[in-house]
Nucleic acid binder design. Structure first.
Lengths: 228, 228, 228, 228
DNA sequence: CATGAATGAGACTTCATTCAT
DNA sequence: TATGAATGAAGTCTCATTCAT
């Protein structure tokens, strides 16, 4: 499947590459089409935002017939939901991988913030997609921000953070990070952007300036850094 | 196909009456239809977001025929742009009125942040509209954030703020404020929400905790506080 | 309007005739498009039945753009409803015109039945449309059958009819008439078909054979007999 | 593309069990999938009408894959046709069973009419399906009405009926019966509904009132009365 | 034969935009 | 300028049908 010629339009190279790779591995099931659709949707988000995701365009991007989408999703809303959730899970895991052996909440948070900012610098298109999802997909926040909440609580216990309201602090972290990503998408990037943002966030959460700067500018960990 | 600007022509009586209520500025006297349309658009934003602004609906909300819109705007995009710009100007003036006699950058900034958060608490629908505009209207940020930029520079000169990059700081202030508004729109409000956010922002900009708290929690000024 | 060329398809002759006639008379309003749509819908009913009424086909038949339909009807359902109601009203008036000076219920009923059967013989396509509407449009029955109900009651008062249940009798009259029309649409027509059916109906309602035959075969009245 | 008939191949166990419940006729033993599909279709007719029969839904109702349908039917039209024919045959046999030892045409006809009306009262959903089939399936009438035609002729020979045209009479009987069923489906049922309708029909066919009433109200015969 | 993913034509509906009045 | 009927492209969704497995 996904190989049926499709009178739609010649495939963009990255699609050929992608679909060419996947059939190689002997995945058992054919329902990988769903994943293909989600990935295609993210590419469109990157270009035009979720608001303008047209299902026939998605079908074209995925090299699939328009009706096929409805074998995997009940409605357009359902597609947006699923894409948001999928992205949230993927990003959660990426950040988790980088903070497996970090036990200090402030450090964990810093790494999380920096990961997103670094990735935005590296791939602004990806950042556009993520920002879209943050603003629109309901399931996204709840799925992704639980990690942030845990790090905040850890930071409080460890005496690094002081804030009056956890939800307000949570929104602060998320929106400041997303705001930095937006700046980058809009074409502006500062030197050490990721560290600058992390420092501001840590300070905002109540950490003294010196400590905040120290943590925010610590070497970024290895791991599977940020490979989309 | 139809001119763009024009604030010249007499309107139906009920429109004159309606716009007469809005003493925003001393326009000539007739043809404030354009302003009427913008205000109507904002009401629709508040209800449904700008993404879903339908021009037919706008015409109905404004009590005007659908074709009339094209006597004042070239296209739907043009309407969105104009609404964003108008909102930015209006909000700038509101904040300016409150900070006319405040000379300290940090205080000015704090008041600005708190104004938006307070207003969001008071009128979440309005906040929805503003958030929509922040995310979508291109001209909006540049028009509104120049005040913020000035306050930032003032704060640096006065030794209150320390940040490595002004643009990053600017984005930080705006996104943290918008993030708090989003939280409120989503139904969560903390006690003294406006002060909490202002404090976080000031700290993030490099102000020591005690000072930040002191300024952020100072009495909110009088004036024409925030009357939509 | 309705003259805008329409890149759709050359008009069938009867459409040209129809639209050619209407603009002649100086009708004031342009919203006769609604009537045009209803008439076009009836032509499609005649060919394919209501079930298969496709709105783009309706637009084509009416020589109108597909979106225009939605200036007059909220949805496809609404179109079907309106067509049914319109037809019911039209038919009611036709029958009323023929029975203005007939005071005997049995006679009135006989004329009604015969009118439908005669018209079906004359224009089986029209009959197809009517049958479709009888079976599917909810508003149709209630609008049209009130006349029948009145005639039934009159017949009972005048001692011509005897039946145990009025609703059952009403259904009997309507379905027997519609059944005869179906027969005709299917290609079979008997001599004096209208009289035969009327006689059966009158008998079924309790009228003795002689009287029934006499009334059912009475000369059909003048008037504006049945000109669609 | 795939053969049409075939009642040859073994089915999944649950299907065999299911069809085993239907001892309609002594088919070989396997592959009553076709019959299963027809029965499933009738259940859907009862719920939603044949117009809305979706083949996907039919497949699900039958516990079969959508492609399988095409091993037994050439197209959706073919399914509808087959369902109509099957229902006609089944109903014919039900009525036949009840009139095996009845030799008077008027009585046979009365029993037939009453059977349908009684069954409609008992199971309006079933009646919906039958009405749908009467209106839409072409093969249905010819298959079912031959019995009615025979009874009509018998009634004429026996001096009970008098009508000018057999086809008109036939349509009269069928449509009056179907009309009564429609009334019932629409929610109205009279006391002794079946007898009332039979009496009207007999009278309409020319039988004097007393005799008609007597026959129409005769005790309804035993047998396998009407068990779907 | 059975499966069910894929197809793609076509249906309904919305809405920005045009234009004659 | 104001009107609002008309337009038609575009979008969402359904469903009969095909075909590789």
């Amino acid at each position: 499947m996904a190989t049926k010629v499709s009178k739609l339009k010649p495939q963009a190279p990255e699609i050929a590459a992608r679909t060419g790779v996947q059939p190689t591995r002997g995945f058992k099931k054919k329902a990988r089409t769903r994943q293909l659709l989600i990935e295609s949707a993210l590419r469109i988000y990157a270009r035009k935002g979720m608001v303008d995701l047209a299902l026939n365009e998605l079908a074209e991007e995925a090299g699939v017939s328009s009706g096929t989408i409805y074998n995997y999703f009940r409605s357009r809303e359902d597609v947006l939901e699923a894409v948001g959730l999928s992205l949230a899970i993927e990003l959660s895991q990426q950040v988790s991988n980088l903070t497996l052996d970090v036990t200090r909440g402030a450090q964990r948070l810093s790494i999380g913030v920096r990961t997103f900012v670094k990735q935005a610098v590296r791939d602004p298109q990806w950042a556009r997609a993520v920002i879209q999802v943050i603003h629109y997909a309901n399931g996204f926040k709840t799925a992704l921000t639980e990690n942030v909440r845990a790090d905040l609580q850890l930071g409080v216990e460890q005496g690094d953070f002081q804030y009056a309201d956890e939800n307000v602090a949570l929104a602060f972290v998320v929106s400041a990070t997303a705001g930095a990503m937006t700046t980058i998408v809009d074409g502006y990037t500062a030197d050490g952007h990721d560290g600058l943002v992390a420092e501001m966030v840590l300070r905002g959460l109540g950490m003294p300036g010196q400590k905040a700067r120290c943590i925010a500018r610590a070497p970024y960990p290895r791991g599977l850094p940020v490979q989309k």
